[in-house]
Simulated assay, not measured.
Amino acid sequence: MPDSKQEQVYNITDSDDGFSDISKAYLISKRCMDLMFALIGVVFLCPVYLIIALLIKIEDKEGNIIFRQERVGKNGKLFYMYKFRSMVSNAEELKATLLEKNEVDGPVFKIKNDPRITKIGKLLRKTSLDELPQLFNVIKGDMSLVGPRPPLLEEVLEYTNYEKIRLSVTPGLTCYWQVGGRSNLSFEEWVELDLKYIRERNIYIDIKLIAKTILVLFGSKGAF
């Protein structure tokens, strides 16, 4: 039985306004592509994983290498998303003292030059290497390579019914706004781009977004 928090989330996608009209062939092909690329990525990136883990531990021996955070997935299902830890070990506790400095509109919290970010964390975020552990989320099926980024529960509870439509598909590692502005976009623009993807998605668009993501991985000015 889900707890009361989960029940709140499970009820948020009762109406998708026709956004879910998609072929089973596409969904099967998308899942096969997710598994293939994610497994290949994990194998070939093993040395990178080890180097990043070592650098994180050298800077902060107390904290964990992997940061695990509860996120909201398809149809409101809760899951734990993985990232390389890019902040100090008590970052969540410090968040309350920084809320007034939020630089993003809508139910999202982000600030440039966040004092909680470690030195190695700045590099990981700049290059999006902190997101690499999410390949395991893709393998598990909690995420896809392409789709709307999975939000926090506290953000979802502030969504309008229109904004909740972005939860009607499996969340992804990358999406339109990840390759076209990232944190420089407003929350409203994020939502519109996510809904654009949900309406238009197909294998060609997925492959194109994956290719664009690889091109902008290093040195993205919108990442923070």
Rank of each mutant, 00 (worst) to 15 (best):
158 E>I: 12
158 E>P: 02
159 Y>P: 04
159 Y>E: 14
159 Y>H: 10
159 Y>F: 14
160 T>S: 14
161 N>R: 00
161 N>A: 04
164 K>S: 09
164 K>Y: 00
166 R>D: 01
167 L>K: 04
167 L>E: 06
168 S>V: 11
168 S>A: 12
169 V>K: 03
169 V>T: 10
170 T>C: 09
171 P>G: 09
171 P>R: 05
172 G>K: 06
173 L>I: 13
174 T>S: 14
174 T>F: 03
175 C>V: 06
175 C>H: 05
177 W>K: 04
177 W>A: 10
178 Q>L: 09
178 Q>H: 14
178 Q>S: 06
179 V>F: 02
180 G>V: 06
180 G>Y: 06
181 G>Q: 01
181 G>D: 08
181 G>K: 05
183 S>I: 01
183 S>E: 03
184 N>I: 05
185 L>T: 05
186 S>T: 15
187 F>M: 12
187 F>R: 01
188 E>Q: 10
188 E>A: 15
188 E>W: 10
188 E>K: 15
188 E>Y: 11
189 E>Q: 15
189 E>P: 10
190 W>Q: 08
190 W>L: 13
190 W>H: 14
190 W>T: 08
191 V>C: 05
191 V>A: 09
191 V>R: 07
191 V>N: 11
192 E>H: 14
192 E>K: 15
192 E>Y: 12
193 L>V: 15
194 D>W: 12
